[in-house]
Amino acid sequence: KLPDTRWQAVEAPGEALTPFQDASHYNNFYEFGPDKGDPAANAGRLPTEPWSVWIDGEVGKPGQYALEDLVRPHALEERIYRLRCVEAWSMVIPWLGFPLAELLKRAEPTGNARYVAFETLVDPEHMPGQRSRFALLDWPYREGLRLDEAMHPLTVLAVGMYGRVLPNQNGAPLRLVVPWKYGFKSIKSIVRISLTERQPYTSWQSRAPEEYGFYANVNPAVDHPRWSQKRERRLPGSLFSPNLRDTLPFNGYAQEVAGLYAGMDLTKDY
């Protein structure tokens, strides 16, 4: 597939890429453990082949699809995006993927479809975090987008990064990337995509609604109740340059996406 890939289809001008080693060894993927190094240490054993994804809900063509069949019709594109975690750190990562909109169109959303819900794999045997009795999240991990957000050209499903297949700890074999929202919206290791009429349940919102909203757009003006979102640490940092910088509205993608939220009070719909 790689020969057809459109390299650097979207670039991040003036931004240095985060090294692959850092992007693949500093992860929040609580299914594999609470510490940043846990996913890299524990995710290797997860079988990602064969993999299939349920597509259901308000669609004309529901069903369980093999991953290859989902990906095959699409030309892969490289998208170099900033990733801003809700914990106030950020990276710049070259993803390989295709627009979610293309996949959704092929599933033929019905007129009732207004939201898209996603679910991560549940596999306690290979995901030690799902066996922890002290985890504060419930499984499966769930996320969601409004349909217009999901159809936006910046929203992609990624199957690779840095020109290679996604490492398991980064959400192999299929993950979402929504660059203007906090990282937790970009759900990993997807097994279900449902189109719904009602706003879907999402894991973090139900865990702590006053801390994590459904929209979770990167917004320096709305603090997380426990820490400020005004600035971020661009990784990698070092002792002598913590690499602190100002966080941009919509993570710097305001020009492309601010229109989606016209007329909304983003301090309320955070």
Binding site: T18, P19, D22, H25, Y26, K36, G37, W89, M91, R233, L235, P236, G237, S238, L239, P242
Partner: peptide, 18 residues
């Protein structure tokens, strides 16, 4: 720990780890 941070053994966010 400081030495580890110095030789980049604490990962990309050494300040937070410290």
């Amino acid at each position: 720990w400081l030495y580890q941070a110095w030789i980049f053994a604490l990962g990309p966010d050494p300040g937070k780890v410290l």
